[in-house]
Simulated assay, not measured.
Amino acid sequence: MARKTKAEAEQTRRDILEAALELFHAKGYTRTTLEEIARSAGVTRGAIYWHFKDKVDLFNGLKDEIECSTETRLEDLLLVSVNELSDFRDNILRLYRNLENDEHFKKFFELIFLRAEFTEELQPVLNQFKIKLHRLQQKDTDDFSRLQQAGKISANQDCVQCAFALRCLIIGSLNSWLIEEGTFSIVERGGALIDHFLNSLR
């Protein structure tokens, strides 16, 4: 019986997160209420407060759930090894494939990039995102430097600028794909763009 109760509680939590993603995506974070999320999930507001202390905590729970399921947490990304220039491409294409094949992941990216209003209560979330970008760019800089020392990147390349350019390419591709509502394959077109950039570093 205890296991069933725990399983039911976990299912309720998943139902709440599913409803939150759909409503945040459709209406935006600010215009979505906990009452609407509860109604959509078929639960009471009390059930939401059992799992999340407030709407911000629910938003963070949604972020953590999706990042864990797609291995895109900062902790995961910082552990990805890069020994060849092609490893950059493979790692980026893994992200792009997730976006094309996982509707939840795509909706979350649309929410973050296009639909979330980063009001005062969401500033900690935005600050975490900035920290994540900074640490990933530093990792890319370090990886480019190692490849340069190994003779796999031209000696006249500025590795800090290389990392910044790669970040701009990724974010620009993501924004274009999301804005155009997936009318082209980000794996194909984005992959070709990354290939062109990486080949220019040799």
Rank of each mutant, 00 (worst) to 15 (best):
R31Q: 13
N156I: 10
E120L: 13
A165K: 12
T33I: 03
F197I: 06
D102M: 00
F88N: 00
E103M: 13
F52N: 02
E120H: 09
L34Y: 04
F184G: 00
L74G: 02
S154M: 12
E18G: 11
K55Q: 02
G61L: 01
L74F: 00
R115W: 04
L136W: 03
V160H: 14
K152S: 04
S40A: 15
H196R: 15
D90Y: 03
T12G: 11
F118D: 07
V80E: 14
Q128M: 14
N127C: 10
L114S: 03
Q149N: 15
V125M: 08
L23V: 00
G190A: 01
L21K: 02
E65M: 10
A19K: 00
E67L: 09
K53D: 10
Q148V: 03
V160D: 14
F59M: 12
L114Y: 08
D90M: 11
H196N: 14
W177M: 08
F113S: 13
A192C: 11
G151L: 02
S154V: 11
F108H: 06
L193A: 15
E84P: 06
K139Y: 02
D102K: 02
R189N: 14
N127R: 12
F108W: 14
K152V: 00
I186M: 06
F88A: 06
I179C: 08
F109S: 12
K63G: 09
I16D: 05
V125P: 05
L174V: 04
W177D: 13
K55W: 02
E120Y: 08
D76E: 10
G151R: 00
A163P: 01
K6G: 09
E36P: 05
Q128R: 13
E100H: 01
K53V: 06
V56N: 08
A163G: 00
I186W: 01
F164K: 15
D57K: 11
E71M: 08
N91A: 09
I131E: 14
A192Q: 15
E71V: 05
F129Y: 13
